[in-house]
Design a protein around this nucleic acid. Sequence first.
DNA 1: CGGGGGACCATTGCATACAACTATTACGGG
DNA 2: CCCGTAATAGTTGTATGCAATGGTCCCCCG
Lengths: 221, 221
Amino acid sequence: MAEQRGAVRRRDTTQTVCAAIRADVVGRVFTPGERLTEEGLAARYRVSRIPVREALRTLESEGFVHSRPYAGTFVAELSESEAEDLLGIRLLMEPFGAERAALRRTPVQLATLELLIAEAREMLDAGSAGGPAGLAELNTRFHQVLAEASGSPTLAALVAQLGYKISWVYSLGHPRRAPESWAEHEGIVQALRDRDPDAARERVAEHIRRAQAAYRLRGKH
Amino acid sequence: MAEQRGAVRRRDTTQTVCAAIRADVVGRVFTPGERLTEEGLAARYRVSRIPVREALRTLESEGFVHSRPYAGTFVAELSESEAEDLLGIRLLMEPFGAERAALRRTPVQLATLELLIAEAREMLDAGSAGGPAGLAELNTRFHQVLAEASGSPTLAALVAQLGYKISWVYSLGHPRRAPESWAEHEGIVQALRDRDPDAARERVAEHIRRAQAAYRLRGKH
DNA sequence: CGGGGGACCATTGCATACAACTATTACGGG
DNA sequence: CCCGTAATAGTTGTATGCAATGGTCCCCCG
């Protein structure tokens, strides 16, 4: 369990460690402002310091940690306004990507999105048997595939980074509006199926505005 | 000269190497698709492989290179549509940032922008004595400071990454519209001075649309 | 002569080891 | 008792070295 947590098959170590640290940051295992020692992380994931260092450089450029030479690496702290801006940026980029995706999506991407919706519906019908974590995972993947369907690797990468950060912010308290959310996803996929860029853009924009509103309500803690 | 190119003061090596490689990628010293060997880069910049590796991880997450385990690192290739999308994304993000900047800019940031404009005007009046590279550098910094003035570190980082990539694309052939460009910059700063978010957003949008148009004209090669 | 398979080599991935710097703490002076 | 300074310890930065893997070239076979 914790023993084998980061036991890598001597391959892809850096990427695995990077994902693990990011997951632990997003999952609030490491609290914002906390100092991360390379040796501590190395021990935690059962690797040496080199993969840890490389993972930290990636996470730094993604904005999850920041480090000063010889001083150490610290988990980033997102201000409230920063969290708000994140949602604003997302509201810009995802509709833009969806517009492109309506024109450029491949059949495989379309089918993947439909598959994700089907899996989500199954989970919802089963009464969240897969757990809310499963739905959140599906949601992340949905938005990820949607971004990739835009045909722009840069845009997809940016959306992915944003998605991680928003998960981080949202982790304070998940708004529970999964059924509505997935219904909206269906509308988005329909627009992609119809190759209707305007509808795709508008539906994604509306989807994100609603998520944003739900977040703001939860934000009053 | 080339001898001392990457001779680092035994500090900040990784960041310096990262910037150097990025500059060489943007400057077309390394051509898209080219394979970069760690040892070759280490020799070029007079450092060991470790800083090179870490720099490459950063550049990978920024999208300038891509690497597969054990296979090597390759300079990324930007398709024409990808270049077009880059400009589209910039057209989304920079006006958004400018809107925020009009409300959040600090006096120091405002003064910095004014300083940059003054320096640019001096160069222009001197008949591009500082060289076009100097103006391009000032342009990059202007947009960088403008993005930072939005008060959102995430947004600033994204704009910075985009800026590098756009410099890369533009390096195929610089559109020479520096005088008009800097006149527009003045209008933008005026909007920030007036704390007028709508004007700031619109002027930046117009500025970028014109740069985009100039690029498209040049693009017909 | 063209295509497939295998061995060699270059290169990457990772761990260990040493040097350099920061932060903390203890000590002495005011 | 507080502040400034210096030594110390802990952590980061970099170099060297070895094991694992992918790419390439050559040989053999069809």
